[in-house]
Computed example of a mutant assay.
Amino acid sequence: MASERWDWAGGFGKLTTAGVEGTGSFGYRLAHFLASAGVAVFEVNRPNRTTRRRRGKSDPVDA
């Protein structure tokens, strides 16, 4: 299943850099997989919870 998703992601072009939330906890395995495939992985901060609750789900906040 992982190879199918990797093929899907590769359909958008060569993946060279990725931002992953929670690389020290729940995002660890994804970050490890990407790094082992030669992708530069960067930790991204989670959006502020208060902002997310007040504004609701939206692309600018969730993206």
Rank of each mutant, 00 (worst) to 15 (best):
G19T: 06
N45V: 14
T16A: 08
P47A: 04
L34R: 00
M1I: 07
G22F: 05
E4M: 07
L30W: 08
T17S: 05
R53I: 11
A37Q: 11
R54E: 15
T23D: 03
D7W: 06
A35Y: 01
T16W: 00
R54M: 10
Y28I: 08
P47S: 10
H32R: 15
H32K: 15
E43S: 02
T51V: 12
R55C: 14
P47L: 05
V20M: 02
S58C: 14
E21L: 14
A31N: 02
E4W: 08
R5A: 12
S3I: 14
K14E: 15
G10L: 05
P60I: 07
R46C: 04
R52K: 07
T23H: 02
N45F: 15
F12G: 03
N45G: 13
T50I: 06
V61A: 04
D62E: 10
A40R: 15
L34T: 02
A35R: 00
A31K: 00
G56D: 01
S36L: 04
W6F: 14
G19L: 09
T23N: 06
G19I: 09
G38I: 02
T16I: 11
R54Y: 07
T16N: 09
R52C: 12
A37I: 01
G19V: 10
V20A: 01
A2I: 13
A2G: 13
G13Y: 03
S25W: 12
F26C: 08
S3N: 11
A40P: 06
T17R: 13
S36A: 12
G13W: 03
D7C: 07
S36M: 04
F12N: 04
A9R: 00
T23W: 02
A37R: 10
P47T: 12
G11W: 02
G27P: 02
R49N: 12
L34Q: 00
D62S: 12
T16H: 09
G24S: 03
R29M: 11
F33S: 11
V41D: 03
A31R: 00
D59G: 13
V44H: 04
P60W: 04
V41N: 01
S58K: 02
G27V: 01
F42N: 07
G38E: 01
V44D: 03
N48Y: 05
D7N: 13
R54P: 06
V61E: 15
R55D: 14
F42S: 09
P60S: 09
A37W: 09
H32Q: 15
R46N: 04
D7P: 05
W8M: 05
T23M: 06
R49L: 09
A9W: 06
V41S: 01
V61I: 13
F12P: 00
R46S: 06
R52G: 12
N48S: 05
E43W: 05
G27S: 01
N45Q: 15
R55T: 06
P47F: 12
G27T: 01
S36E: 13
A2H: 11
G22K: 05
A37H: 09
D59E: 15
H32G: 13
M1F: 02
L15V: 07
G22D: 04
E4I: 09
T23Q: 05
V44E: 07
N45S: 15
A40C: 11
T51K: 08
R53T: 14
T23R: 06
A35E: 08
G13M: 02
A63P: 00
T16E: 12
V20P: 00
W6L: 13
E21M: 14
L15N: 00
N48W: 05
R54H: 09
H32W: 12
A18I: 09
A63Y: 11
A2C: 10
S3A: 12
K14S: 07
